[in-house]
Each structure stands twice: as C-alpha cells, then as structure tokens.
C-alpha cells in the first residue's frame, strides 16, 4: 500500500483529486483555487450507512453518501461530493482498487457533485466532443480505440461526465482518464501488443492501455450517438427525438438508481432535460457482420456532415 503521508494530485472529471494513492490513469495536476478538491484517503468505512435510503446487492446509499464494498478488494465510501475513503482488503493489489475506484466511486462522486455521468465513450472532433453511448459490450471503448488510432483525441472511454458551465449554462463534457480499458481481442484487432497495456486484474483478460494525452479543458458537445448492434445488413443512423431520446439517455445514465436515495432527484432530472433539449442525439446501429473499418468511416462521415 502507498505511504499514507505521501500525497498525489490529479485532475479528472472536472475535479482536482488530492490522493493517498497513486493513479497512473489520471492526469497529474496541482489544485487551482477555482475548483473543488476531492480528498481521497485510506481509512475505516462503516458497515452500514446511518440514514440508509436504498441498498442493492453491494451498495448502500443515503443522502450525500455512497458505500460500496467489493469482496477481496476494498470498500469505498463517497461523501458529500468531496471525500472518498478507501478501506482496502489485506494483500490487495492497488491496481484492483483503482479499477473499482475509477468506475463506481468516481461515478457516485459525479452524482454527488450534480454532474451527469453518462455511460459513453467520447472523442474530440474539431474542438468538440462526439459521444458514443450504449450498453456494456456494444463497442464504446473499441470505437474510442479506433478513433484514437486514427489520430483523434480520446476524452473518455467509459463514463462521460457532463457538466453545466456556471456562467453560460452551456453543457460541457469533462476530460476523463488517460487510459483505455480494452479486452484482449480488441487489443489484437487494434494491433496493440499486450506489453503496451497493463493487465487490470488477475484472471481478467482486460488491459489498461495508456493514451498520451486527453483534452485539458471541458469541451462543448456536438452530438451523442446511441450505439447498438443489430442483425441487419446496413449501418443505420437516424435522429433521436422526444421521448425516445429521453428514454435512451436516462437508461444510459451511470448508476441512475443512486440519484433518488442520495437526494439529487430534482437537479438530476433538470440536467437530463437540458441534455435532451440542447444536444443532438442519433441512434447508430452497426450490423453484427459489419467490420469496424467501414463503420468508423461511416461514423466519421456522419459527424463531419452534421457539424
């Protein structure tokens, strides 16, 4: 485990992190006075939250609090949008703690900070963000990896944190982590050697592949593509509007079930409405049989002609 006295400083998802643990997946940055600093510490976590409002198979949620024990790894206690306490299990590897921290704990933190975490990867095109949202396994990270290989900057590969700019009210995406999470078969298809990545967990053929840089500042969002695969022959794309758009974005909200018990129903739905009203969204269907090369060209052409 890292020495408790040493601190590490990062910027990700619109917040500065003052951490007890080293995170090679995050952009090093020293806190500026403008933004809130989230403190990450090792410590004792409760077995049960006091004002418990909801619990699932693992998680507990209470107003402004989230508790998540992961067997043999660690328990994460996220509080008030500015504090994360980690209680590691004995002999756990730090890389395993980071896997769950960067997804679940940071996702809960985003809700607590009234941000909108969307299950989506994102790339930068002409200074704006293109988001690819969809279920696990639909190819979000693969698409981000392919666009990265084509020279596009990746903003995030798993969770897109959407925030509202305080003064202008504009919806922006915050830069995420300097890593793509890729399965071995995707590494192979992207011609990335296993040595270029880091195995995320023993027993899992999934790698962290470092990417050299991500945008430094929040970006305007050009469009959200709702990605799916289907057994047809043609690549299909069509605008999503109204109820259909609302339903897609709500369904792809990261851990939507935390919103009510943590006490953010109203601001969350206001932000969801803003997203639906302000951002163009398209349903994008990739045929099972379609190779990614043609698909990427199709998508690239679509977002170029729909600027």
């Amino acid at each position: 485990m890292a020495e408790e006295t040493k601190r590490f400083y990062y910027y990700a998802n619109g917040v500065y992190l003052d951490s007890c643990m080293k995170f090679p997946e995050l952009t090093p940055a020293y806190p500026s006075s403008e933004k809130t600093v989230v403190k990450i510490e090792f410590g004792q976590t409760p077995e049960k939250l006091e004002n418990l409002k909801a619990k699932g198979v693992r998680f507990q949620a209470a107003p402004n609090e989230f508790l998540l024990p992961i067997d043999d790894v660690a328990t994460f206690w996220v509080k008030n949008g500015d504090h994360i306490i980690i209680q590691p299990e004995p002999r756990v590897n730090e890389s395993e703690i980071r896997v769950f921290f960067l997804a679940s704990a940071m996702g809960a933190l985003a809700h607590q900070r009234r941000q909108f975490p969307l299950h989506a990867s994102a790339i930068m095109y002409n200074g704006k963000a293109i988001l690819f949202s969809g279920d696990s396994g639909v190819g979000k990270s693969t698409l981000a990896g392919l666009f990265h290989k084509k020279g596009y900057q990746v903003i995030t590969d798993d969770i897109s944190i959407i925030d509202k700019e305080k003064n202008t009210g504009q919806l922006l995406i915050e830069p995420g982590y300097i890593q793509l999470k890729l399965w071995e078969d995707t590494m192979n298809s992207l011609h990335i050697g296993k040595k270029e990545g880091v195995l995320l967990r023993p027993g899992l053929k999934k790698y962290g592949y470092p990417i050299s840089s991500i945008p430094k500042k929040p970006l305007e969002i050009q469009a959200i593509y709702a990605l799916s695969v289907y057994p047809g022959k043609e690549i299909l794309v069509r605008p999503l509007e109204g109820w259909e758009k609302f339903r897609h974005i709500k369904k792809r909200t990261f851990r939507q079930k935390l919103v009510d018990p943590m006490g953010y129903t109203e601001p969350h739905y206001r932000l969801l409405e803003d997203i639906c009203q302000s951002l163009p969204a398209f349903q994008l269907q990739r045929p099972f049989e379609e190779g990614y090369t043609t698909f990427v060209e199709f998508v690239e052409n679509h977002f170029q002609t729909n600027q």
């Binding site: 198979v57 896997v99 997804a103 995320l200 899992l204």
Partner: peptide
Amino acid sequence: DVELSDLT
C-alpha cells in the same frame, strides 16, 4: 452495482 466486465 459494478460492471460485470470488471469481474472475473
């Protein structure tokens, strides 16, 4: 409450 893809 976690991504199954992060589990063995």
